[in-house]
Amino acid sequence: MKIGLQLGYWGAGPPEGTAEIVDAAEERGFDSVFAAESWGSDAFTPLSWWGSRTSRVRLGTSVAQLSARSPASCAMHALTLDHLSGGRCVLGLGVSGPQVVEGWYGAPFAKPLARTREYVAVVRQVLAREAPVRAAGPHHPLPYDGPGSTGLGKPLKPITHPLRADLPIWLGAEGPRNVAQTAEIADGWIAVYFSPKVAGTYADWLAEGFARPGARRTREEFEVAAGAQVVVTDDPAAERARLKPSLALYIGGMGAPGMNFHAELFRRMGYPDAVEDISRLFAAGERDRATAAVPDELVDDIAIIGDAEHVRSRVAEWERAGVDTLLVGCRDPEQVATISSALHLGSAADNEQALRG
């Protein structure tokens, strides 16, 4: 299994010490560095800025939101980063949710699967650079000929020749139809809140997509990346408590009533009653009680917390469950070193020094 560093998205300002964390990930054997976006910082600029310090790790978006840019614009971002990094870009895409899409980007959320399929097809046309880009729409028509059109739009090929026509496109997906479509049209899947206990269900959804006529990849050619908090510690209870406020936010506050994809995911995982309690308390403004309602077992399902032996065992379990790349968040270079040592990613000398220090 490959280990990647998940930088996430910013809060009120740029997080301190990120450059040193990225340096440590490169030095300690991490395979990749990923950045996210929500409605503040973007995903591409941090990868360009901090990725310029690296020479080996892959640089990925997890995820770039479809409504943030047109597909042609997104392809421009990806091909630029790919050139600057020497072919290390991974383009992770996702639809986000209706609150962000309609509230922040001012675009309709309807038909997310169809929009994703069209978006990916346009990006691939740009990267292939075989002909001027054309798309029938209806979501991303090129050239545009709808209301307000001058009728002067011209199909274009990118001026810059993309470094790789097959630059990998991964999709963030949670529901059964979205995951199946991901297996059909993408090169990889970014799983949010993955748990080995539901790996069989995910495998079935993926298999449906791989079996479709014209599917782009086989399972052997496809990469499953899962985000997880990995903490090597002798005090797992404290680490669970640190993660619960974020989980309460995603379960209770990152969606609308009746349309919260994260909440639905945890229902499928076996926590319908907890999801109901967390959602009700969060909606009532009782965030502390919502946090307290997050079960320890739920945290342990989606995070890997414990001593080095336990972490190694759980990571192996996730690998057996079908995860090819584990994306982990790290607070500082020391956590990078500790994870690297526990999983034997770096050199023997580096691992021994980290365990001593």
Rank of each mutant, 00 (worst) to 15 (best):
L66S: 03
L66P: 05
A72Y: 10
S73V: 11
L81S: 07
G86W: 04
G87L: 15
V90D: 06
L93Q: 09
S96E: 06
G97H: 15
P98W: 00
Q99M: 11
V100C: 04
Y105N: 15
G106Q: 04
G106T: 14
G106M: 03
A107N: 08
A107D: 13
P112K: 13
T116N: 07
E118M: 10
Y119I: 06
Y119L: 13
V120N: 03
A121C: 05
V122E: 08
V123N: 04
R124H: 10
Q125V: 08
L127A: 02
A128K: 02
R129M: 04
R129W: 01
R129Q: 06
A131S: 08
P132Y: 10
V133C: 12
V133T: 12
V133H: 05
R134P: 01
A135P: 02
P138E: 00
P138W: 03
P138R: 06
H139L: 01
H139A: 09
H140N: 15
P141D: 10
L142C: 11
D145E: 15
G146C: 12
G146M: 11
P147C: 06
S149G: 10
T150W: 11
T150E: 12
P155C: 06
T160A: 12
P162W: 10
D166Q: 13
D166P: 05
I169P: 02
W170A: 11
L171Q: 02
G172H: 03
P176L: 01
P176F: 10
P176Y: 05
Q181W: 00
T182D: 02
A186Y: 11
D187A: 07
G188Q: 06
G188W: 03
Y193L: 07
F194L: 10
S195W: 01
P196Y: 00
P196N: 05
V198I: 12
Y202M: 11
D204R: 13
D204C: 02
D204S: 08
A207I: 08
E208C: 01
F210V: 12
